[in-house]
């Protein structure tokens, strides 16, 4: 089996400006040794294919109702693996609802129902033998307002691996926590105060902690619901840089109402309006040459 350390090696890329957004960076698999510590052997449930196979999320005629109110109308969307897909649209268009359907967080709301299907790597999310708990480990989520547990920084990141029994020893856990914090670009800032309360961090740091926490369970997909909307510009930029770095290892779906952010950060963009998917395509195409009139109207700011 290939050494996971090597497979994960990549050179960090700085975020590019709007002009070069969308140009795909080939996933470099040059076997150069990186400074990162060895990634602990984390066992995955058996999936079709090895870690290297593309993981996609695919929605087929997916509709969703809150009671009598239909929030999503027959969404057909393919989310490519190892890319950032942005969901944009005005308030109430259903983009957050769609996002939360991917890890079935909408199950928590009483009185909802859906139609159609969403598949993760070919398996339906809603099949009877789908394990929601396992799904949520494979599909991680970062929320709009950072929500760290009222525990220490270490305990926050360690919670997911602990509860999912991902590691066998304390040593492995510590390595995993360190690795996750490094990948969330937070390690240097907190490495000396891992046992201090997470609530003492700044807003931007807390959000990166939540990202580290989500990464610690080794997800395949990371969902982000307006992750930077509550942050100042500098913290926002850090988060966007992070997203850019993470996409070589994870499939990322990000909901944002900030179009410039979508243009900066994503490879594919999907425009939602009133519960329908109006248009989806490569980000640079959507923003420079949209096919649908509504898309153009939204992007040029005529409504929203």
């Amino acid at each position: 089996m290939e050494d996971p350390t090597v497979a994960r090696a990549r050179t960090p890329h700085p975020p590019t400006h709007a002009g070069t957004v969308g140009r795909e960076r080939a996933a470099t698999s040059t076997p150069e040794t990186v400074v990162a510590p060895p990634v602990p052997q984390v066992s995955h449930p058996s999936e079709s294919g090895s870690r290297e196979t593309a993981v996609t999320v695919e929605a087929t005629d997916f509709s969703f109702w809150y009671g009598a109110n239909q929030a999503l109308k027959q969404i057909n969307l393919k989310v490519p693996s190892r890319k950032v897909t942005a969901l944009i649209g005005p308030s109430g268009c259903g983009k957050s609802t769609f996002l939360r359907s991917i890890n079935r967080m909408n199950d928590l709301i009483p009185g909802t129902r859906h139609d159609g299907d969403i598949e993760l790597d070919g398996e339906s999310l809603f099949s009877p033998d789908q394990d929601v708990v396992r799904l949520r480990r494979r599909v991680g989520m970062v929320f709009q307002k950072s929500n760290p547990f009222p525990k220490s920084i270490f305990e926050n990141v360690a919670y997911g691996p602990r509860v999912n029994r991902l590691v066998d020893s304390r040593r492995e856990l510590e390595d995993l926590v360190e690795h996750s914090l490094k990948r969330a670009a937070l390690w240097d800032e907190v490495k000396d105060r891992l046992d201090k309360s997470a609530l003492g961090l700044s807003g931007g740091q807390q959000q990166r902690l939540c990202i580290a926490r989500a990464l610690a369970v080794e997800p395949e997909v990371v969902l982000m619901d307006e992750p930077a909307s509550a942050l100042d510009p500098i913290a926002t930029q850090k988060i966007e840089e992070l997203i850019y770095e993470l996409k070589s290892d994870y499939t990322i779906v990000i909901v944002t109402h900030n179009m410039q952010q979508a243009a900066r950060v994503s490879d594919r963009t999907a425009f939602f309006y009133l519960g329908e998917l109006i248009e989806v395509g490569n980000t640079d195409v959507i923003f420079t040459n949209p096919k649908k009139e509504q898309t153009e109207a939204y992007i040029t700011g005529r409504f929203g």
């Binding site: 995955h44 449930p45 394990d131 708990v133 396992r134 029994r165």
Partner: peptide, 11 residues
């Protein structure tokens, strides 16, 4: 192994 653990968690 993970399956067994997950089954125990579910139980």
């Amino acid at each position: 192994m993970t399956d067994a653990i997950n089954r125990r968690r579910k139980i």
